[in-house]
Design a protein around this nucleic acid. Structure first.
Lengths: 335, 335
DNA sequence: TTGTAGGCGTTATCAC
DNA sequence: GTGATAACGCCTACAA
């Protein structure tokens, strides 16, 4: 049983409210008395019990973070950013994985509710119809991260998909490519639609006529990327460059190209999106658009902190991506 | 302000202790009354305040997890395993990154202490002299994961480094290799020493004479792996196979081999350790020893749960690795 | 400057 | 079967 404020009070020969004041230097208290109290507190290894404090103050200095799964390296980095700033501000982080399972989402939110977290951060890619009322019921500030459908939530933060895509495609155009394909994700995803829009933006800005056959679909994973790349190669006039929805898709594309004997970047250039840790270890190292994951976590945490401080904040912020040029892109062969 | 037990009591026309009993079906309470109470509780969206409960029960149903950084995908998967079982058992997980910074370690442990976590899981690679007394002071069950120096702690869980290494080397020997190198980590790391021991075990079991020149050092990262691989190639009689301390080291080795024009696995075989997500995407896909990270997290969490339940448990458990054969290993060319 | 007393939301132990 | 009542550890008026 660790020492309580009363133990310290008894030892110091004062009453517990004096100890409380002294230890938080809040309110007035005689300097000598305060010193004595602090000394004794240290001697007995007194640590204020935040449970008792929370009950009295009606806040827990605690934030709940829900993610699909922290086993996803992308998610993990965002969480690292979140934890870094929250910890520094004296908040502790509850981490829970929903695994995108509805029952788990329910039990996670319930757990956070019962524990009276001061705020919640959600990175769940899709905050479904079930989820949303559940979260509102919590009645604490909520910030969404990288959510596909932030509708109905006031505060969110995500990557600037469209701008990031423009960076990638501009890079390819700058290298002289004119026949550029987009190897996308599934239809209906906001991020995919935005990246596609950015792709079109740049083609148009460069006066390049788009071609429907150059836009194909994957599913964000290597295997579909490989297959979609195959269909691109089968075109009468294949592209000289491919902008992929993400790095995992690009891995599949690279595989296909490797198997077909197309040299990258000699014959065709490939760009990804995300800059996963893996990107620089691919063969060739992948040119891609970096998502500043740690920074996104930080920003989200700060946004929540502002909300907790009672600030009225801008609703949704988009953080810019950054082009990372590696070995998978090269000038187009002017034929 | 969310409803409290008293609100429910008032609405149900009973006293709060009856509500408490009814909701936890603990103690006797009239069936009809209980139903009414439950109905009302649901109507007003009552969620028991675990802060109040914790104060009364003197436990928080909360576990603290300290890691160096969850941004490391390896760590993140272990955390996912931990969270999965803890959540299912009604525990919430506090996650904190120490970043291997002493001050942060101190403040993390203090935070956990003040929040009165019921137990702690530490995955910090090195639990230094500062850390240790700090943790003991917490006076709750502690389980160490993958710690290099578990000395002084009663409970820990880690990979069977020696056994894993034997798996890798046995595989190479089975393919006919006899001149096998070990590209290790820095001197002094227990995991490195154990993997090296496993390497020697198998050589000896196969009646192969070891050679000091075939054991070289890296630092667990690609660049040093690349350099060390270079020194192996410079040998008068280079190895036909290399067992690397981990996958990151193997990536460096692969780079070196690629640059030197040595075909893998045609001319030389390479084995890693870890099975990072990246391993299967390398060129060629890397044969390696899988560490069951999620499972390790699960086991550690269960061990802690047993401890919390008051069980007297086996002190330290080692979980076996598993050989994953991919494209970087092939039969030796019998010259 | 310090002490007293009440309350935060529960659980638990008594009486009734 | 139910209601008082007293903790649990802390904070915060208010009184002294």
């Amino acid at each position: 049983m660790s020492a309580s404020i009363k133990d310290v009070a008894r030892l110091a020969g004062v009453c517990h409210s004096t100890v409380s004041r002294a230890l938080r230097n809040h309110g007035v208290v005689n300097a000598e008395t305060a010193d004595r109290i602090r000394r004794i507190a240290k001697e007995v290894g007194y640590r204020p019990n935040s449970i008792g404090r929370s009950l009295a103050t009606r806040h827990t200095n605690t934030v709940g973070v829900v993610v699909t799964t922290v086993a996803d390296p992308f998610v993990a980095e965002v969480v690292a950013g979140i934890e870094a700033v929250l910890h520094d501000e004296g908040y502790a982080v509850f981490l829970a994985n929903s695994n995108a399972i509805p029952e788990r989402e329910v039990s996670v939110v319930r757990s956070f509710h019962e524990r009276r977290v001061d705020g919640v951060l959600v990175m769940a890619s899709r905050v479904g119809s079930l989820y949303k009322p559940l979260l509102q019921e919590l009645d604490v500030p909520i910030v969404l991260i990288d959510n596909q459908y932030p509708g109905g939530f006031a505060h969110s933060i995500s990557i600037d998909d469209r701008g990031g895509a423009r960076l990638a495609v501009r890079h390819l155009i700058g290298l002289g490519h004119r026949r550029i394909a987009y190897l996308g994700d599934q239809f209906g995803l906001q991020a995919d639609a935005d990246r596609l829009a950015g792709y079109h933006d740049e083609l148009q800005a460069a006066g390049i006529a788009g071609s429907a056959e150059l836009v194909v679909q994957g599913d964000g994973k290597p295997e579909k990327g490989r297959i979609a790349m195959g269909s691109l190669l089968a075109l009468r006039e294949p592209p000289t460059a491919v902008f992929c929805y993400n790095d995992m898709t690009a891995i599949g594309a690279l595989r296909c190209l490797h198997a077909a004997g197309w040299s990258v970047p000699g014959r065709i250039s490939v760009v990804g999106f995300d800059d996963l840790p893996i990107a620089s270890f691919l063969e060739p190292p992948l040119t891609t658009v970096l998502q500043p994951r740690i920074e996104m976590g930080r920003r989200a945490a700060r946004m929540l902190l502002d909300l907790l401080a009672g600030g009225r904040i801008e609703g949704s912020i988009r953080v810019p991506g950054e082009l990372v040029v590696r070995g998978s892109t090269a000038p187009a062969n002017r034929g």
